[in-house]
Amino acid sequence: MKLEELDRFLNTYTESERWHLQQGPQVLSPRYQAIARTWFAGREMYLFRFKTLLENRYVCVNKESRFTHIPEHIHTVIEFVYVYAGHCTQMIDGREVTMQQGDICLLDTQVPHSIGYLGAEDIVITIEMQKDYLTRGFLQRLGNNGIINNFLMNALSQNAAHDQYLLFKKREENPIHGIIQHILCESYDPGLCSDKMIDAYMVLLFCEILRQYKNQTFSGDPGTRWKIVDILDYIENHYLTATLQETAQIFGFHPNYLSAYIKKETGRSFKELIILQRMCQACFYLSNTNLPVCEIAQKVGYDNLGFFYKKFEHLYHVTPSHWRELQHNG
């Protein structure tokens, strides 16, 4: 399917939509009779499992039917809700969330939510994925070359593991829309290697979401004008020389406050972040150069080769040489 055909395809009434136009907005589709209900958070709601759609794949794509609503339910999978056109209103665990065209929402498993009535102009796309696809196997593929990526991916996956949702508002330039268009084209008109293409576009989608998450992640303390990502960026660029005292002075904090703030936001101490960044840089050298391990250790700030080996193996559970071999062998 070509991109110019996609809008026409999405706006064409489906059989379900024609049925809802005849029955009225309050009548649920007969398919709900076969969907299990469960007692959750003190009330009864539907349980969407997606067993059939995800039986032999990690990702499935769906256009939600217009001229109806989706009653309160929970998922056993991770879900993206993307407003392709128009708008939609979700109730997420009792909180009203209004989404406009271009907004995307990441919902964890076990998050009670519903979607209000969708009119003729409201095109809402959902992308379901098995949780392992996000929390383990998939995010690791995005790379771990620095403490910022490490923090952002952990934040995203941890939020998606604690009954949460993340809302990303449309930016003036919206690369997400084009990425989702390609995912839809491959899903609705599959061809050779479509599953691989969708997988590749999902990587791009997550990379763009990580960029937006970086721009939206502010400290929970309204009196703090610095984002944690700014501090991580400084540590990432000055990992060979940065000290807690110097970093605190640059950002206008007392060293004790900065230490506690970093620990709260990242789950790691300042010293641990320095070590992590050094090891990330060592991994880059191991993957992309033929430098001997002893020289790499010196380049990332370790004159004591034994200490470098100890810290590397503690983080990656293999020796630097074995790590290099694994990377070269794919």
Rank of each mutant, 00 (worst) to 15 (best):
E44W: 00
V77N: 13
T52C: 11
L28M: 10
H73K: 14
L53G: 10
R49N: 13
H75F: 01
I74Y: 06
H20D: 12
Q26A: 13
Y58P: 03
L54K: 07
E44F: 09
K51A: 08
F67S: 06
I74F: 02
G94C: 12
F67Y: 14
Q90D: 13
Q33S: 15
Y32R: 02
R31P: 01
L54W: 03
H20W: 02
Q22I: 11
R49Q: 15
E72V: 02
Q33W: 04
F80S: 04
K63Y: 05
I35H: 00
T52W: 13
I92Q: 03
T38K: 11
Y46P: 01
G94A: 12
N56V: 08
Q22H: 08
K51P: 02
T76A: 10
F50N: 04
G42A: 11
I78L: 08
Q33N: 08
T89N: 13
I70K: 00
R31K: 08
G94Q: 12
Y82D: 01
Y32T: 01
V61L: 15
K63L: 15
V81H: 14
Y46R: 02
H73F: 03
R49F: 05
V83T: 08
V61T: 09
H69D: 11
T68D: 10
R37D: 10
R57P: 03
C88M: 11
P25E: 14
Y58N: 15
T89R: 15
L54R: 10
V81I: 12
V77G: 03
Y84R: 07
V83I: 15
